[in-house]
Nucleic acid binder design. Structure first.
Lengths: 360, 360
DNA sequence: CTGAAAGCGCTTACAG
DNA sequence: CTGAAAGCGCTTACAG
């Protein structure tokens, strides 16, 4: 493997000159520059990353800390990976993928061994055990996901509060008065997936203000359990005309569930989800949804991280950037039918609305 | 950040002794070992990865080269990532995720800069342009996917030849005589996705030997195009009683397509797919399938790669390991109905079998 | 059983 | 405009 010494010898210059010719950090005669370039070309020289890191204290590598949890919907994770990876590459950084069950320990290792110049934490929980490790590190970190304490880190997430309000407002304005919110599994909340209650509490607030009835329920994040759960929920809430889905697995299971019940959207039920455009495309999901923007979040996190690493934003206060919800209309919401119009009792699984069901 | 010099000072020993205490490469008095361990603990010392790499020429990092192509079904990729990442961690290696449009250039960079001790190439094409780069590198490489020329690398893949034979034999033995193979999009084949024709040619061979009619067609790998394509194929091949799917997107679209046509499996049509258990679980796919074993392939590739890196297999001949197909039975295959039993003309989209259709 | 020293391949003041 | 030299933090022969 060629070293900079080889390049220098072939070009007939000193090693420092060869180095400066490569970095462009001081002006050289055109002739020397060309001779060095030719030597690099001839030898197929690439600087040794370890040596460079040792000399400069920079690795040009970012740590990407994913955690795959049991009840997480794995396919949704890929989009974050791509957003981070593509943005990093564009800015001249490589990505070290750290996917370990013990988050804090591996984060600490990667940070104190100086394998990375900074880290992106995915899937951040409300009281994420990785945060104390990150705060005591030399390198900066950017989070995707909103923890309780945002001090010392840059935070990016979808604005789940506004998302909850927006979903309710949208359906209310179409005339819906009975809504059902389908959440992630309860485990996700217990583990600190704060976005579940951020969306839910905002939705409940908005519903209360507007005089809308909103039921909320947890649902599994795996097939086929989630399908069964959706059937049970629809059985239990026959009066509901609008569905809010904060659960990717539920969104991907709903089309078959509706088909099995002989229901169509938006004729029988209006549906608003929360997932990415890419996700919708891959699984052909027909529901209007608030864009969860994984690629954008990955991009924002990496950009800010690199700004901090490179000193551009070193002294800048830390940011908490919640991106506003944007609804992609796929035509799955409309004004509800009047109760009289709804022939639900004719259909498989469907039940007659209970006596107490109120009109819109 | 503490260095080994700090550790040595605190422990009251020389730097070399501290280093040996950490590596265990020579015997030390119990007392010294303990003092060093205490110093490490006290200082929170972790060796600097760059310095270590420079001194040892080992990074304890593996490169994972993915390529995301336009017409690839992204969610299937995640399982390979996890297989590689989990196995690498278990063996003491980190993973550098390299996901670049220009495969050969980035492979070369990662290799000659010595960022990694070896690489796993995913999604290997028949004449993969990354292979010449890999062959001329110092570090070993393991492939997932079978190229035309396997020299100088270790290769792991599903045995698509046996898979094709097995699918046909399975359906033939149940009594099917008219089969349809749904492939990946033609682009995948053109780009060198050899597994497409490996499966197809073996299936055709087996079909010819058994006197079975086998039609084959390309289908898109994105929704909703693939759904439309499936409808068109079923319209065009009304006599077909058995479907072979070598296309994940087709598998995930087929349940709705069958539902839309009022068909059920295996009553109206027997289906055999080729995808992973995890994939089936995530999307609740009801079809029996040959396990594509992404986690196992990732694991095999990493194990062999690490064996080569660590010299255990340095002189060993390179392997081409094709894992035999194993069918996971989900009950989607059965004996075909007799033509007279098949009330297909009553159903939406269905057509009466043409006069030439022959009985089983 | 332990230490002093060389060397891995870079970068960057320092000096001319 | 260019070069000689120190130093980044490790590991590992070499020497005792």
């Amino acid at each position: 493997m060629a070293t900079i010494g080889d390049v220098a010898r072939v070009a007939g210059v000193s090693r420092s000159t060869a180095s400066y010719a490569l970095s462009g950090k001081r002006s050289l005669s055109e002739e020397v520059r060309l001779r060095v370039a030719a030597a690099v070309e001839e030898l197929g020289y690439t600087p040794n990353a370890g040596a460079r890191a040792l000399a400069t204290s920079q690795t040009k590598t970012l740590g990407l800390l994913a955690q795959f949890l049991d009840d997480e919907f794995a396919p949704a994770m890929m989009q974050y990976f791509l957003g981070v990876s593509n943005t990093a590459r564009g800015l001249g950084y490589d990505v070290l993928l750290v996917n370990e069950p013990d988050g804090p320990a591996s984060l600490r290792r990667v940070l104190t061994s100086r394998m990375v110049d900074g880290v992106v934490l995915l899937n951040v929980a409300e009281h994420d055990t990785r945060l104390p490790v990150l705060r005591s590190a030399q390198q900066p970190g950017a989070l995707v996901g909103l923890p309780a304490d945002c001090s010392g880190v840059d935070v990016f997430d979808l604005d789940f509060h506004e998302t909850g309000r927006h979903m309710v407002a949208h359906l209310h304005e179409l005339g819906h008065r009975d809504l059902l919110l389908v959440n992630q599994p309860e485990h996700v909340l217990e583990r600190g997936g704060a976005y579940v209650w951020r969306l839910q509490s905002a939705a409940e607030e908005e519903a209360a203000q507007r005089g809308v009835t909103l039921a909320a329920a947890f649902a599994p994040s795996t097939q086929p359990d989630v399908g069964r759960a959706l059937h049970a929920l629809l059985d239990a809430h026959p009066q509901v005309t609008g569905l809010l889905l904060n659960n990717e697995a539920a969104a991907s299971a709903l089309p078959s569930v509706l088909a099995e019940r002989g229901l169509t959207s938006p004729d029988d039920v209006s549906v608003v989800g929360r997932y990415s455009r890419e996700f919708a495309r891959t699984f052909s999901l027909p529901f209007s949804a608030v864009e969860s923007a994984p690629d954008q979040l990955g991009q924002l996190a990496v950009r800010q991280l690199v700004r901090r690493i490179e000193g551009t934003a070193a002294a800048t206060p830390h940011v908490v950037h919640l991106i506003p919800p944007s609804l992609t209309d796929r035509g799955s919401t409309a004004a509800p039918r009047l109760p009289a119009d709804r022939p639900r009792a004719d259909r498989p699984h469907a039940r007659r609305p209970p006596a107490g069901a109120h009109a819109p």
